[in-house]
Design a protein around this nucleic acid. Sequence first.
DNA 1: TATGAATGAGGCTTCATTCAT
DNA 2: AATGAATGAAGCCTCATTCAT
Lengths: 219, 219, 219, 219
Amino acid sequence: MIVKSETLTARGRRTRAALLEAGREAFEEQGYDAVRVDDVCARAGVSHGTFYTYFDSKESLFGEVAGAVVGEMFAASMVGPAAPDDPYARVEAANRLYLRAWAANSRLVRMLEHAATTDDRFGRLLLELREVFVRRGAEGLRRLQEQGLADRDLDPRLTAIMLGGMVEHFAHVWLDLGERADEAAAVDHLTRLWARAIGLTRASTPRPGGQNREERGEA
Amino acid sequence: MIVKSETLTARGRRTRAALLEAGREAFEEQGYDAVRVDDVCARAGVSHGTFYTYFDSKESLFGEVAGAVVGEMFAASMVGPAAPDDPYARVEAANRLYLRAWAANSRLVRMLEHAATTDDRFGRLLLELREVFVRRGAEGLRRLQEQGLADRDLDPRLTAIMLGGMVEHFAHVWLDLGERADEAAAVDHLTRLWARAIGLTRASTPRPGGQNREERGEA
Amino acid sequence: MIVKSETLTARGRRTRAALLEAGREAFEEQGYDAVRVDDVCARAGVSHGTFYTYFDSKESLFGEVAGAVVGEMFAASMVGPAAPDDPYARVEAANRLYLRAWAANSRLVRMLEHAATTDDRFGRLLLELREVFVRRGAEGLRRLQEQGLADRDLDPRLTAIMLGGMVEHFAHVWLDLGERADEAAAVDHLTRLWARAIGLTRASTPRPGGQNREERGEA
Amino acid sequence: MIVKSETLTARGRRTRAALLEAGREAFEEQGYDAVRVDDVCARAGVSHGTFYTYFDSKESLFGEVAGAVVGEMFAASMVGPAAPDDPYARVEAANRLYLRAWAANSRLVRMLEHAATTDDRFGRLLLELREVFVRRGAEGLRRLQEQGLADRDLDPRLTAIMLGGMVEHFAHVWLDLGERADEAAAVDHLTRLWARAIGLTRASTPRPGGQNREERGEA
DNA sequence: TATGAATGAGGCTTCATTCAT
DNA sequence: AATGAATGAAGCCTCATTCAT
């Protein structure tokens, strides 16, 4: 009988959390395939049988880990109330968050991508995750279009998917495949590409961030 | 002792080719993990033992399959001499090819991505593959910059990585994750985003394709 | 320390009884192997740990359940004071009781048979159980022989084992293996076979039951 | 891929047969539950993985063993052309064969009984097995009835089930549960009970077999 | 008494790879 | 070259039982 957190005593909750944490670490360090249930148990300092008190299988543990990660990424994707007024700066802030959110969990997201290959449930999780970013991007674009600050001939959703994908994919190439770049330059470039792609007109104060401030300032 | 094609009799070459072909099909249909050596042999109509006459291991078979796929993608990425003169049209043609090349091998590329996780050799293969597209993109951009048709403040390589990634990633989202879109619209959007992102000035005849022809025609 | 009923508080007695009852149901429904201690606890509405307050092991629980069942079967096997005078009718009544007793507990008896395979203790229990019926049968036969109502050349014990086995086995075939028959016809046939086998002479009033009344009435 | 005998090379057939034989021995000696796949492999002198080349699982091995046993019992149940003319002697011969067939495989039949509890497939096998004996018995009785040698008021099938069950069950009590008896006496009693139960009239020469020849000869 | 978390022995099965023929 | 039998490392999972609270 597998137990969710609600039913558990404090001790049980601790054990479950330890397994979850151990699982996350193990997956991140070793990759899904290489992780044996016993590895996780050893990390968590519990016996082997205990694992199955809390989780059905390695896959089910991964499901929870992935769920947690996705939750964190949701949270991290919020620009928040402190967002700047300037549209360009907003785009930049969003891109930075996007990049960081993806970067922070790069390995697990890749595992999720792979898991999605086999198990639809993970495919759905991945879709949900992307959808959050896509929605946010599409919303932002639509607003800019309404304000006359962005090209109206772009389909908001398709555009958000494409430009969001650009950021996401760059995170992958950068962090997983070892393409050399520094964050500032990356964010700057991504933002400029993004802004120009949608025809973002700097309505008021042109406050471009990043390192090419001057150059663009001249334009 | 594993034998490559050169050393083989006609019969041997046939068997080897059959295994390779069978492997490719099997990997594409079932995914790396799910494929058993026996599956491949069965498809190729060959006994288990025979497999090891031609390949060291399942992984080595995958290596060859992946190599072949990458080769095909290289070939497919050539815009060719029939490329249009108009820069925008060239970008469009390149994007179409890019998308198709990735689409045609989506599953195997994903497998390669996963394999890269474990085995550096596949990581390198993947890098090589991307590099071809990145180089091509960077070259193109540099040329446009020199001709004064694209913004000079963009780093060609970084830009190519990012915009190329946009295309590649869209292929993935589209084909593997089931985002609905039709090719024409996708290519059109990708091209517009790409063109605007690099500030592509239509030097001569603006010949934008896609669904918003008129609007842009007015400009 | 395992506790028997005598030592227990009222609450303890209730818990123990609940486990016993739950165990019996579980065994009957699922079979020995398929029953997990947890199943029994769940049925009894008790936590896992509690089980071992009252029973040494799953096997020991089964032992008690089996004991209870055997006790019931003993009780059920009594023809009682209301038994008819007519020997044939007595045989018939005994057969009906025998069949019903076995039928009522068919599944548990089978489990007992299986348990006997591994554990002698259950073998002995089974022997005791059978012995009751065998003795009763042998006694009855001996009395009939003495009264000149049954063949004297039959060994009473062997005969009782064989004819008793016929009844018992028929119960098994009928109830466990799905041979179609109705109780009345079964009892009638069993009784006729039994009676003729021992050469039962209807001393006084021939009062054969069942469906062939007339035919035999003619004799 | 599991292989049946037809497809195999001589070596494969030998290995398969060895596993089958080893399985049968193991089951007989240790009982189904106690047998581990590895035990069987050790007996057969093959590795552990080899087992799964030939059988799906322990259960499937048991299925084949049981099938073989049932086949042997079918064969053993034939009275054969050497059967005596005298009906009583025929019954006696049949009972002896019946008893021996059951006795020879008592342990495995018990395992089959138990397996039938869980798996219908074994239930069906058991039914088939019994059906052979039931049919034979019913046929025999019907013939005797037609010849006027046995009571016409008995349902042949029901009677065969009951009297056959008597023999079968006695074999069980005798061999598995340790009831003391010698074969000759057992066969003699079974036959007498059977014969009388069906009202077998010795048409021609009364040639009762067994040890009580003289006593009965006097009657 | 009752709880329920923790334990770990015990078995099953898969499949890449080797090897004798 | 081809065959296919044999191998065994490697992991997964269940569940009766113990134990601290």
